[in-house]
């Protein structure tokens, strides 16, 4: 143990300029991001979930009718919906499970015994989850628009802004729920309590995807922009009650 002799005498640690608030916040944020990419299952679920959903729904080439009667490819509705869903799942999953585990195993107590303010750790949790949610949002956007050919109308900035606000809301809700969870076992039912009403009241359940009208269903998955370029360059629209390409 000779290599450790230097640590025995008090006064041996090198000081780092900066407050525990800032250095603790940076260290906790990095640690939380590491917790995602060092856990292969969590990484695969977080990053892969929206892509898998996109592949499945594009494979069936569904369409849906908007409230104004317009028939659009389901993908055009799905991508913004997925982005909202990501904010919800990353916000809730990403906070509820790890934070309740830290609480149960005394890790939060250990951190609380340091001079770093508790708020610093909480902000680190929020920032790390927000960064992850925005990264997955970006991946969904790129895959949805540029690979599968979703046609998103409206402002991209607004979409990102709403994704950020939505993620923050669910992260905050997750932190609040951990305060009530006695153990990690309590977390899943608490999460369902939020997830199910959120999905039901979002309107996603009303917008049933249907097979493309007046066209045979594809028997194999094809990215939509390839289909569109080859067959019909335009958009689907209802004309006299019949869906046609414009």
């Amino acid at each position: 143990m000779a290599s450790g002799e230097a640590i025995l005498a008090h006064g041996s640690a090198a000081k780092r300029p900066g407050s525990p608030w800032l250095s603790g916040f940076v260290a906790a944020t990095i640690s939380e991001i590491k917790s995602l990419y060092r856990e292969p299952a969590a990484l695969a679920f977080t990053l892969g979930q929206p892509i898998v959903l996109l592949v499945i729904l594009v494979a069936f080439d569904f369409h849906t009718t908007l409230p104004n009667g317009k028939v659009v490819p389901y993908l055009d509705v799905l991508v913004p919906g997925l982005i909202a869903f990501i904010g919800m799942t990353v916000g809730l999953n990403g906070v509820l499970f790890p934070l309740s585990r830290y609480k149960e195993r005394g890790i939060l107590r250990r951190v609380a015994a340091t001079p770093m303010p508790t708020g610093s750790f909480v902000v680190a949790m929020i920032v790390s989850r927000l960064l992850i949610a925005l990264a997955v949002t970006l991946i969904t956007w790129i895959f949805g628009v540029y690979v599968f050919g979703a046609d998103l109308t409206g402002s991209a900035v607004l979409l990102i802004a709403f994704a950020t606000i939505g993620s923050l809301a669910f992260i905050a809700l997750g932190i609040l729920m951990v305060a009530f969870a006695r153990s990690e076992d309590d977390v899943a039912p608490l999460m369902m309590l939020v997830l199910i009403p959120s999905i039901l009241f979002s309107g996603a359940a009303d917008r049933q995807p249907r097979p493309r009208p007046h066209r045979p269903r594809h028997r194999y998955p094809r990215p939509r922009h390839l289909v569109r370029r080859r067959d019909h360059p335009g958009r689907l629209a209802l004309q006299d009650g019949v869906a046609r390409y414009e």
Binding site: M1, A2, S3, G4, E5, A6, I7, L8, S12, A13, A14, K15, R16, G18, S19, P20, S23, G24, V26, A27, A28, S31, R110, V111, T114, P115, M116
Partner: peptide, 22 residues
């Protein structure tokens, strides 16, 4: 990480050496 929570940069090699985990 714990060092950062105290605002210090610990000598991790010496600490692990002290407990024979260097």
């Amino acid at each position: 990480f714990l060092g950062a929570c105290y605002g210090v940069k610990p000598d991790t090699e010496a600490l692990l050496g002290y407990v024979d985990l260097a």
